[in-house]
C-alpha cells in the first residue's frame, strides 16, 4: 500500500508546481511529472507477485503473466505525453520571442 501513497505524493508534487509556479518551463515540467506518476500507478495496479513479463515463453506451461492491458494503455500514453510536451515547448519558445519573458503574468495580450 505504501507504493500507492508514494505515487500519489508524486502526483501532488506535480500539482503543487503547476499551481504555484509562474514560469512556463516549470509548468511544462510539472505537467510531465504528473504524467509520470499516473504511468507508474497504472503499471503498479497491473502487477502480480511472481508473474512474468507478458511475452509467451517457449517451454513453460500455464505461467502467470502480469496484466498486459494497463501496459498497452501506458504505452499509448507515453507517446502522447511526448507529443504534448513538444507542442507546449514550441508554444513557449514562440511566446518568449514575442514577450522576452517566460512569466505568465506578463503575457497579457491573450486576455479577451
Amino acid at each position: 500500500m505504501i507504493v500507492y501513497i508514494l505515487c500519489f505524493i508524486l502526483f501532488l508534487v506535480g500539482l503543487y508546481g503547476l499551481i504555484t509556479r509562474r514560469n512556463l518551463i516549470k509548468i511544462v515540467i510539472s505537467l510531465s511529472i504528473m504524467e509520470f506518476s499516473i504511468f507508474i500507478l497504472l503499471v503498479l495496479i497491473g502487477y502480480i507477485d511472481g508473474g512474468i513479463a507478458p511475452i509467451i515463453p517457449e517451454n513453460v506451461t500455464n505461467p502467470t503473466y502480469v496484466d498486459p492491458l494497463p501496459q498497452a494503455m501506458v504505452l499509448t500514453a507515453i507517446v502522447i505525453g511526448l507529443a504534448t510536451t513538444a507542442m507546449l515547448m514550441a508554444i513557449a519558445i514562440r511566446l518568449y520571442r514575442k514577450y522576452r519573458t517566460f512569466d505568465i503574468r506578463d503575457i497579457k495580450n491573450l486576455k479577451g
Binding site: 511544462v28 513479463a53 507478458p54 511475452i55 502480469v66 504505452l75 507515453i78 507517446v79 515547448m89
Partner: peptide, 28 residues
Amino acid sequence: LKAPDLAIVQIVVETITLIIMVAVVLDS
C-alpha cells in the same frame, strides 16, 4: 515491474524530450 516494452519506449522518449527541452532552454 516486468514491463520491458514500456522501459524501451520510455528511455528513448525521455532522451528525445530532454533534447527538445534543453534546446529550448539554451535558446531562450
